[in-house]
């Protein structure tokens, strides 16, 4: 979906009050092979995922790696400390695996949570240093849905027409300076 950008590219934002209009615009953009740069919404819109088909979220790998490191690290910590600073009680083994499971489990959950957090931040590119992007409008966190279309210069009217036809309540064009910032 994120094609290589043309240096002479224009951007057009459509702001929608209704979700079905947004869906219609996305289908139309897909049919006309327009480049949907981004979609903004105050709530998750599963339909947008269906139409634009972004990659499956890799966050779960962060959870898995974090959880695995936590479990191995927690158990290793318990075993090594009990071997090095051992407390010998009668004939009992120095390493007691059952009680160590508590620490192992807690470390698994703790590092699993950190893995999920970092996985999400990296995948969602947060913190986003260049906030706001050229296409973002504050109303998109309130009650409007936005589509950012990019098209070659001179074809802005096609994008505008598409957005208006789908029912956009407002259509903005992104000025050249902001577009070049967006490329940076």
């Amino acid at each position: 979906m994120f094609k290589e950008r043309h240096p002479l590219e224009a951007g057009m934002i459509g702001s929608f009050a209704h979700l079905d209009c947004l869906e219609q615009a996305l289908w139309a953009a897909k049919a006309q092979q327009m480049d949907v740069r981004d979609v903004y919404s105050p709530v998750p819109v599963e339909k947008a995922w269906e139409i634009l088909k972004p990659q499956t979220s890799p966050v779960r790998f962060g959870t898995f790696v974090g959880g695995l490191l936590g479990a191995v690290g927690g158990l290793t910590l318990c075993i090594l400390t009990s071997v090095i600073w051992n407390i010998v009680v009668a004939g009992k083994p120095v390493t007691s695996h059952v009680p160590f499971m508590v620490v192992t489990f807690e470390a698994l959950v703790l590092l699993g949570a950190f893995g999920t957090l970092f996985g999400m931040l990296i995948a969602a590119r947060l913190p986003f240093r260049r906030f706001p992007t050229a296409g973002y409008r504050p109303e998109f966190s309130e009650d409007h849905f936005g589509i950012w279309l990019s098209c070659p210069k001179g074809e802005e009217h096609k994008a505008r027409q598409l957005l208006e036809k789908a029912g956009a309540v407002k259509v903005f064009s992104i000025d050249d300076n902001k577009m070049s910032e967006a490329h940076a």
Binding site: D38, V39, Y40, S41, P42, V43, P44, V45, A48, W49, L52, P54, S57, V59, R60, T63, G67, V102, F105, E106, V109, G112, A113, T116, L117, G119, M120, L121, A123, A124, R125, L126, P127, F128, R129, R130, F131, P132, T133, Y136, F140, S141
Partner: peptide, 30 residues
């Protein structure tokens, strides 16, 4: 953190939220 509610951000957010819920659930018991 510069959250904008883009469809990709929501995708990763919802995936992470389910995973956090799954990790936090055994904690309630533990």
């Amino acid at each position: 953190l510069g959250w904008m509610g883009s469809f990709k951000q929501w995708k990763h957010y919802t995936a992470a939220y389910v995973l956090f819920a799954a990790l936090a659930t055994p904690l309630v018991v533990s």
